[in-house]
Nucleic acid binder design. Structure first.
Lengths: 204, 204
DNA sequence: AGGCTATGTCACCACTCGGTGATATACACC
DNA sequence: GGTGTATATCACCGAGTGGTGACATAGCCT
């Protein structure tokens, strides 16, 4: 016989409801009433356990992994490979991880529109990943290559966000595998060209 | 003595109020009541003149220029310049135009989150600009260069959106002129490297 | 002037929102 | 078994939302 009253369990139910709600309806629908409805729980429990909606978002940010498996993306980087290959890997792994996680996509989009405990925590989490990527590359942060990699990552993230609602940009539907492979090939070649051109003109 | 009752004038007031509201408060705040309040007009007039909120958005999309001066960005492109220079110009002009228009930024962001008459119309307007850019370059749409240009444009757009709420990515604050100049320099060089590498290995 | 219609004002509806107080009840402890 | 407390339920609040009907009046036409 399962216990009918288990605070830890209802906490979990609320957090799970929030996650489902964000993933399914998008961040515009989040609110105390909606979360309570989704979790099948009275909304007063949200206030009891989390204090407020902001507290719930904060707890969600702390207890859930917001950037799924992004933390171990960079674990098996081929550090002895040429620079352009490493950079390409970072870009592609980053975008693939985002592509797989509708929740992360929603959070990225949310972060673009407003500030709240969840989005700021999510932002810090992302930033940590980026810094880790930098450390892996062993490059100074203001390097031109870092900037280029960042811009390309941003571009792919943007394309992924556009693809969610089926409004691709310039017919680049990043959700289609063949399109994605094509884009990845192009990015690989441009990174190669960029690094080779740098070796060419700077020899200190 | 000015007329107190002028339907055309109040229509204008409503549209202007909507524009001010989006620009100042962001798209999350738009609604019949808010627009009426901002325009200093009874909300019933919105229904009278536009039928519904959707109708108002549609009218706004049709009667306002959503992508300010983007339509004449590509008028003075140096068509005889090298390809990488043209491509770079397109990327930079595109991003500069977005940077100057807070309204367009908000619409881009809105388009990432939901579909409505305004965002779809805005999307089509953007698309038209992109196609014009393609025509100017005289390149087939599925060309690798086009894809690269698109990804870079997306990247810059994303950086601009991130900069709005002061949460830059990788310390790249695109609103700061020196940062922007640096990014533009890098993009120029990478486009040059890319086009030169293409000439190198394809000689048909 | 008289009347008609377009224009504008006001009051109201049902609903949802975030938030709170009072109350019921399941469970643990004695 | 009795009691206390943590847990959950219910009813309610004020404010705001999208939307509508009833009414007032300015301005034009005859």
């Amino acid at each position: 016989m399962t216990k009918h009253r288990d605070s830890e369990k209802t906490r979990e139910k609320i957090l799970a409801g929030l996650e489902r709600l964000i993933t399914r309806e998008g961040f515009t629908g989040v609110g105390v009433n909606a979360v309570a409805r989704e979790a099948g729980v009275d909304k007063v429990l949200i206030y009891r356990y989390f204090g407020s909606m902001g507290g719930l978002l904060e707890a969600f940010a702390n207890e859930k992994k917001l950037c799924p498996r992004m933390e171990d993306i960079f674990d098996n980087l081929p550090v002895d490979a040429p620079h352009y290959e490493i950079a390409t890997r970072i870009i592609l792994d980053h975008s693939r991880a985002l592509l797989k996680s509708p929740l992360a996509q929603e959070l990225v989009c949310w972060k673009l529109t407003e500030q709240n405990p969840l989005t700021t925590a999510f932002g810090k989490s992302m930033e940590k990943n980026e810094m880790k990527a930098l450390a892996e590359m062993g490059i100074v942060p203001d390097d031109a290559a870092v900037t280029l990699v960042t811009v390309l990552i941003c571009g792919l993230q943007y394309l992924i966000l556009r693809g969610r609602n089926n409004n691709p940009m310039m017919n680049i539907d990043y959700s289609k595998p063949e399109t994605r492979e094509n884009v990845e090939r192009i990015i690989s070649s441009v990174m190669k060209a960029f690094f080779e051109s740098r070796e060419g003109d700077s020899e200190k």
